[in-house]
C-alpha cells in the first residue's frame, strides 16, 4: 500500500530525516513513535508531499508519489489529520467535514461519507452548526480526523491524535480510531507517548534524531530496554 524507501529530508540546510524507510500494508495499523523533534511529523509531511526528499522515494499503491503535490496525493486516497488539527475556523463543523467530499469522488456518496464521519464521532453531530473557533481542543482533534475520514481514504495518517487531550477524551478518540480500523483503511499513527500506542498496532517504528532505530511488532519493543529508554527520554 504505502512504501517509504530510504528518504533523506532537509529543511533549509539541516538534515532532518536520514535514510528513513517504513511500510504500511493494506488494512495494517502502523505506529511511528519517537520523542518530540525526532522527525515523526517531518516523515508524515514528506509522505503528504509537503516536503520533498533529497534522496529516496515514496510510493502509494505501486505509484511513485515522491514528486506529486499535496492535493494530488490526498486525492489518490491518503487522508491526513495533522497534529495541530488545522480545522477551518470560519467554517461550521458540518462544512469542515463536507469539504472533503467535494474534492474526491469515491464509490460512497457524499451523504454516506458524512454520515460515517458522524457515526465515528457522534459528539460532532451535536455541533454541526458551530464554527470551528467554538470547538474545544478535543472536539477539534475529532473534527480533524472526521474530516480526513470523510475523504474515504485508503490510508489514514494521524499525527499525534492524542496529543494534549484529557484522559477521558483520549479514551473516546481511541475508541473512534478502533471503529475506523474496522472499516478497513490502513492507518499510520505517530505518537510520542508509548502508553498511547494503540493495542491494535501491527507494526511499530521507533524514530530518533531522524533515523528509524527499531521496527517490529509492538511486543518485541518491550524486550529492547535501550529503545524503551530512548522513547521515554531517559537514555
Amino acid at each position: 500500500m504505502l512504501s517509504v524507501d530510504s528518504i533523506d529530508v532537509f529543511i533549509k540546510s539541516s538534515r532532518i530525516l536520514r535514510n528513513v524507510s517504513l511500510k504500511a500494508g493494506k488494512g495494517e495499523v502502523v505506529c511511528l513513535i519517537g520523542r518530540n523533534g525526532a522527525g515523526k511529523t517531518t516523515t508524515l509531511r514528506t509522505i503528504m508531499g509537503y516536503l520533498r526528499p533529497e534522496k529516496g522515494s515514496v510510493s502509494f499503491q505501486g505509484e511513485d508519489i515522491t514528486r506529486k503535490s499535496t492535493h494530488e496525493i490526498s486525492r489518490l486516497g491518503i487522508g491526513y489529520a495533522p497534529e495541530d488539527s488545522g480545522i477551518f475556523p470560519d467554517l461550521t463543523t458540518h462544512e469542515n467535514i463536507e469539504i472533503s467530499t467535494w474534492t474526491k469522488t469515491t464509490e460512497k456518496s457524499e451523504e454516506e461519507r458524512i454520515k460515517l464521519a458522524y457515526k465515528v464521532f457522534p459528539v460532532l453531530e451535536g455541533y454541526k452548526k458551530r464554527k470551528g473557533t467554538q470547538l474545544s481542543g478535543g472536539e477539534r482533534k475529532m473534527l480533524s480526523i472526521a474530516r480526513a475520514l470523510a475523504l474515504d481514504p485508503e490510508l489514514l495518517i494521524l499525527d499525534e491524535p492524542f496529543e494534549g487531550l484529557a484522559p477521558t477524551i483520549v479514551t473516546e478518540v481511541a475508541r473512534s480510531i478502533q471503529d475506523i480500523i474496522k472499516m478497513g483503511p490502513s492507518i499510520i499513527i505517530s505518537e510520542s507517548n508509548i502508553y498511547h500506542v494503540p493495542d491494535f498496532t501491527d507494526t511499530l517504528y521507533v524514530i530518533e534524531r531522524g533515523e528509524i532505530i527499531f521496527s517490529g511488532r509492538p511486543e518485541e519493543v518491550a524486550q529492547e530496554k535501550g529503545i524503551l529508554k530512548i522513547i521515554a527520554g531517559t537514555a
Binding site: M48, Y50, S69, T70, H71, E72, S74, R75, Y80, P82, G86, I87, F88, P89, D90, L91, E95, E98, I99, S100, W102, T103, K104, R147, A148, L151
Partner: peptide, 24 residues
Amino acid sequence: SPFGLCLTSIRDNPDKAEYLGIGI
C-alpha cells in the same frame, strides 16, 4: 457554494486545504 467554501478554507489555512485535496 462548495467552491466558495473551498476558497474560505484556502484563506484560513492553505496547507490544510491542500491536505484535503484542494488545489490551491
